[in-house]
Amino acid sequence: MVIRAIEHIGITVPDLEQATDFFVDAFGAEKIYDMLDEPLAGPAVETGLGIPQGARIEAIRMLRLGEGPNLELFTYSGTAQREPVVPSDYGLQHFCVYVDDIDEAATRLEKAGGQLLSAPGDLPGGDAGEGNRYLYARTPWGSTVELVTYPSPQAYETRTSLRRWRPGKDSDTEHQEK
């Protein structure tokens, strides 16, 4: 079996158009298509997705984001919804976007309605290297997003021959069979 990469990340949002505008404005995402002609609901959907009884998927939209995973945006109705998780909560807590110019990306994210939680800082530990930087931010609806750039070799590379997947690399020739 060959594992290639993460294909998409699903994100539940309160407003599909606001979220689409944010990802387009902040990251140059492209709207590919809307998946549903009508809402999805009922016992099969509730069981299949592990969602509460009465929950209804109102819309699903697929976005293309650079060279990495696609973003699949969902809106729901018919169920109580909690605030977005923060990095200290259990479960999927953030997604990370690799950028070439982190200062420009941070400005663009903020201009699109996101909130920077800090200025770009140097990556620590095994990720350290000249010009390797990151920052965390929040989307307009409160999900956590990280921006990262690592143009230089990372410190961990001196300790192992294994390598992280990097955007822009030919992952087809570098994948490992599991």
Rank of each mutant, 00 (worst) to 15 (best):
Q115Y: 02
G114T: 01
P120T: 07
A119E: 13
H94T: 03
F95T: 02
R108S: 15
S88W: 07
S88Y: 08
H94Q: 11
F95H: 06
Q93P: 01
P120A: 09
K111A: 12
Q115K: 08
V97H: 00
L117G: 04
P124E: 10
T79L: 09
P87Q: 07
P84V: 01
A106V: 00
Q81C: 12
P84M: 04
A119G: 12
G91F: 07
P84N: 04
E83G: 07
Y98D: 01
P120W: 08
Q93Y: 06
A106F: 00
C96P: 04
G113P: 14
A119T: 11
A112D: 03
T107Y: 13
I102W: 00
H94R: 10
D89P: 11
G91S: 12
A106W: 00
H94L: 09
A105S: 15
D89T: 07
P124S: 09
D122H: 03
T79H: 08
G91Y: 09
E104A: 12
A106D: 02
E110R: 08
Q93L: 05
Q115H: 05
Y98E: 01
D127A: 13
T79R: 11
F95D: 04
A128T: 05
P84Q: 04
F95L: 06
A106S: 12
P84H: 05
S88P: 05
P124W: 08
G125L: 14
L92T: 04
Q115T: 07
L92A: 07
K111E: 09
V99Q: 00
C96E: 09
V85S: 15
A80E: 14
G125P: 11
L123W: 12
T107N: 15
C96H: 05
G126L: 11
E104T: 11
Q115E: 06
D89K: 10
V97T: 01
G126N: 15
G126Q: 14
E83N: 07
G125R: 13
D103Q: 07
Q115G: 02
C96A: 14
G114N: 01
E104D: 15
D101V: 00
A128K: 10
V99G: 00
S118C: 13
R108D: 11
